[in-house]
Structure formats: structure tokens, C-alpha cells
Amino acid sequence: MAVQKAVTISDLHFAYPSQTEAEPLRIFDGLDLAIDEGSFVAVLGHNGCGKSTLAKHLNAILLPEGGSVHVFGMDTKDEDLLLDIRRTVGMVFQNPDNQMVANVVEEDVAFAPENLGVPSGEIRRRVDDALKAVGMYDYRKHAPHLLSGGQKQRVAIAGVIAMQPRCIVLDEPTAMLDPQGREEVMRTVERLNREKGITVVLITHHMTEAIRADRVIVMDRGKILTDGTPKQVFPQVELLKSAGLSVPATTQLIYALNEAGCALPPDALTTEECAQALYAMLKA
């Protein structure tokens, strides 16, 4: 059965005009990528590897110089489709403070449907549903600046959900949060993916978050370095390190033990899998 593609990027070329030097800053030189609808994809890479630039191509904030980007069959270069593209692919950014417009939570969540000209009654329903989906319904009358980082970021996600998108792109949504806030956001994102079938593209440099995705794409200098399930990607410890990424301590341990002659499954990623693998080895 053919799964519909949420994103199809073919031969993408892009460069930022440089302010100081004559040479523009090349980001992509022929990037190809396809993302299935309903999947949960993590994009990893160090700062400046092009992951944020990639994100901005997915809802026509940036347009390709060469090649094409299609989301759910819509060409991002087609200006007539602009609003349709943006409502279909929602975007959440790193700093929750800088993406909230209104000083009441529910008004903020209503912002996108208001822009789309949705009738009032329908907006009310969408706002309530979106806030319930991220577990922030009880805070609907609060002022955003009094919320914790994790709560703000969940409100930002609700603001995107209210557009009823088919795909959400999150650009380092947890970078400014404490561990508790990170977990809140990750659980919310996972639930949206599983229960509502929304395609999720999570840009991050936390390996522990990427492990939770169905598919991991590692980027380096505008190219895809490796692409596969977490179990295929994470055991490639040397490759990840060369891309400026750190590997979870448990994966490092297994890697080191295997180097020392043990025969552990290199794809034991979670603490539990790792513990079971070690248990099996020691009891054998």
C-alpha cells in the first residue's frame, strides 16, 4: 500500500546571502528527502548543519533556489497555496516567549483560526480541543508570562493544533526548557503523533529525544549523513561523534563493552533494553 508523502524534497538548493563576504552562505546543494504521512521523524545535527533552514522550507517561510519542496502534494513555490501550506504544516520554534501574540492563553491559541477566518463558534471549539490535547485547558484564562517554559511551549503547540494541521515541525522545541518541561513537550508531541496521526518532524540535538522517533535523520553540512530507525542509526557511534553529536551514555557503554570483546546487541537504546542486554550477558 502506498503511504502518502507528507514531504517530498527533490534536489533542493539554497544559500543565504552573506552580509560580510561576497560569497553567499551555501546551505543545500542538492538535498533529497521524503517523509511519510503519519511518521515521527527526528532531524539531528550540530548547530549550523542546516536543520533549521530545512524546517523553514517545509512551510514556505523560505523558498528553494533550485529543486522543489512539496508538502502533501502542494508545491511551496505556488503563492496561491501559501495559506493552505502554512495551515497544513504548523511550526513551533525554540523560544516559546517569542511566538505568543496575545496576553491570554486562549486568545493566543485562537490567533491562527482567527487569521484563517474561521467562524467564532468553530474557533471556540478548536481552541478548547487544542488546549485539551496539550493538557493546558485549565490554564486557558492565564497570562502566558506567568507559565513555566514547558507550559508555554505546550500552549505554542496548541496554537498550531488549532489550525488542524496534518504535519507539525518543531525546531528545537526543548532547547530552552528544564528536564521536566522537556518531558512534558515530548509526551505531548508523541501523543499528537500516535492519537491524531499528525506527522511530526522534530529538530533537536538531544539524542534521548531522537530515540523516541520512528526515524532519525542525521545531517551534517547540508547533507544527510545517515537515515534510518533509531536502532539503525545510534549504534554508529563513531559516525555520530564525527558529526559533532554526543551519544547517550548507555549506547556509549554498550559500544565500549563490545570494543572490549563483549557481544551485546548494539541497538539496545533505552535504559530498559540496555539493562536487559547486560542482565542476559551476566547471567549467561
Partner: peptide
């Protein structure tokens, strides 16, 4: 950043806008 975030949430001026609370 706010301007980009607003664009991502389909802001395109006051034309055709509705309101949560009328």
C-alpha cells in the same frame, strides 16, 4: 522571531479575520 511565528500561523493582515470573542 515573532514576525516569523505569526506568518507561520497564517497571519496576513486584518483582511478576512474573525474573532474568538465577538
Amino acid at each position: 522571531e515573532l514576525a516569523t511565528a505569526m506568518e507561520c500561523r497564517c497571519y496576513h493582515g486584518g483582511k478576512g479575520r474573525t474573532k474568538l470573542k465577538q
